[in-house]
Nucleic acid binder design. Structure first.
Lengths: 339, 339
DNA sequence: GTCACCTACCAAAACGTTTTGGTCAATCGT
DNA sequence: ACGATTGACCAAAACGTTTTGGTAGGTGAC
């Protein structure tokens, strides 16, 4: 055994009476090795509990098996609250997919703020909800890494390696539902994070309102001010001279806090006001009445992003990107019917 | 430049007219090098944009700079909901602390279920809320890795490397508050995960009840069944012949859903029933009325666990462990006063 | 009989560092 | 004046793999 106490390939070679080359060949299924020899080597390796040293493999092969995960909206607010269950579900799915393929997923909080530790080098990266012109996305690309993002960076149209739900279509789907349930003045409350999701939501709403001959009623609320801001904007909307009869809020937190405010102000939901959310969360499921929401399938998004990245790493560049993940609309009490 | 396109230490050595040894010494501040030479080497390295290859450093030094993070309660339920904001805050703080010291934090979903990918080897691990006799904790320890857990493993008293809040004392603190606000029949709803947190909560409650001459009213609800189970157990508690006048639920989700059920059944909170939670979350802040809860300071717990681990890696074994993190009690409307 | 081509194996190089164990000259102590 | 020490530097080994470029013997074709 090596002085380090670790069993090396040479120990196996010695014990089996062959060269290290042959052991390597057997273990990696490469060269031509006689069946008997192969057996003997495998047996010896198992007996000695040989485990290839991944660092040495990396040094030789140039790959580390480590993929970075940057969750941009959380970077911006310091990993506190917000629609966190979305991100946990996404990160969990991505980590699981990575591990299933022999890769590890490394959490990297804001690469641009702290100096990147020398200790890590990466095979690729996943950036969740990049901002417009996102510096972390840029940094990873500058390093020459293959990067997949969850949601595109609108300032970087050439970067086609992303996965997302079709935010515009899904937004219209919810708006259409509200219309079908009788709403004729639909207000939208979007976030202020400068990313594709908010852009697409607003854009889809404006054209939808135009098509339906409705003047747009649009408010924007910072993602980080979920609970308090929802109350403010809710009060604001409902005290308008010509108040909306439905509110579509992009986050579940905003939708729930607006609903709560409306009820406190004496509005009946769904009798006098419909509420829907662009992202399902604990708040939409938990609210009274339950709030209709889009389940953006973060698990599927995370898994697909990882698979897309791994395919690129494996050189299968023929696969189509971007990849669109379908959302599921959970209809709940909050959009039952007006009147 | 090396054929790989990468600038190596030898390229710098050649350009500066010295040996690779001297470059290494300068870069690591080790040997004795003349000031002029040092300057020249540093300048050359900067000009060539030299970046040490971390894999080669690892191979030589035996360290990878990667720390594993296992979040056990999430492993158990597949990274879906539950008290997720606690875990996100903890993981974010741990990852930030790691990065500040040049380490990366790798997410490892259930090491025991999937074969450990060859691609990764680790310098250490952090296990969040291990179960009693936790197999993942065992696996990491078996590999000879230094491991710090967040919450101890009661089946492994010799493993003293953990960080946690003093669950028993904090539980008593909340119970005392309820008592002070007039409650004389306090019920407790704990989770079913087999870990130190639940054990300590129950144990503290039983002895507290005994001291206060109160018969214990204890219910246990699976963590994963947050929203529906809270309603059930709430109904159960309140329909008892001799119902409680206060409920302490260990998770925010359970507390909030019990509160909602109570209100739906016509109980006034806090007039006729007090509610408190053992863990602050979106639900406790968001509920109407606001629910008094312990903020378990996941950021401090995560950061401290990481620092403890890094100190061990650095060989500073003199530091005291376990380390206790104080919790903060957020008093809200739900415990204002009975009557 | 020899040329070509297999099969089965191996020695050495390569990956890019850090560390060990030097050499050589200059300085110091006595 | 001479051994001991120090300062400045370097060649080579080491870390544990994978890959390259072989060798040696056997077999079949002509």
């Amino acid at each position: 055994m090596a002085p380090s106490g670790r069993v090396t390939i040479r120990d196996v070679a010695r014990a089996a009476g062959v060269s290290a080359t042959t052991v390597s060949h057997v273990l990696n299924g490469k060269g031509a090795v006689a069946a008997a020899t192969r057996e003997r080597i495998l047996r010896t390796a198992a007996e000695l509990r040989y485990q290839a040293n991944p660092i040495a493999q990396s040094l030789r092969g140039g790959r580390t098996g480590v993929i970075a995960l940057a969750i941009r909206p959380l970077d911006a607010i310091g990993y506190t609250l917000q629609g966190v269950d979305y991100f946990v579900r996404l990160a969990g799915a991505a980590a699981t997919a990575a591990l299933d393929h022999g890769f590890g997923l490394m959490l990297v909080p804001d690469l641009t703020r702290r100096s990147v530790p020398a200790a890590m080098n990466l095979d690729g990266g996943i950036v969740v909800d990049p901002f417009v012109g996102d510096p972390v996305l840029a940094e990873l690309l500058d390093r020459g890494l293959p990067v997949v993002s969850t949601g595109r960076d609108p300032a970087r149209p050439e970067h086609i390696w992303w996965t997302d739900t079709d935010s515009r279509a899904e937004t219209r789907r919810v708006l259409d539902l509200l219309f079908e349930r009788g709403a004729r003045r639909v207000a939208v409350v979007a976030g202020t994070d400068d990313n594709a999701w908010n852009h697409d939501t607003v854009e889809a709403y404006l054209s939808w309102a135009h098509e339906h001959g409705q003047e747009p009623i649009l408010e924007r609320v910072p993602e980080k001010r979920g609970e308090t801001a929802g109350a403010e904007v809710g009060g604001l909307l409902l005290s308008r001279p010509n108040p909306p009869d439905a509110v579509f809020a992009s986050t579940g937190r905003h939708a729930a806090s607006i609903a709560r405010t409306a009820i406190a102000l004496g509005w009946d939901i769904p009798g006098r006001l419909l509420i829907a959310a662009g992202s399902d969360s604990e708040q939409t499921r938990f609210a009274t009445p339950g709030i209709t929401a889009l389940d953006l399938s973060p698990e599927a998004t995370g898994r697909l992003a990882m698979e897309l990245l791994l395919e690129r790493l494996a050189g299968e560049s023929g696969s189509a990107a971007p990849r669109i993940v379908p959302a599921t609309l959970h209809e709940r009490q909050s959009t039952a019917r007006l009147g």
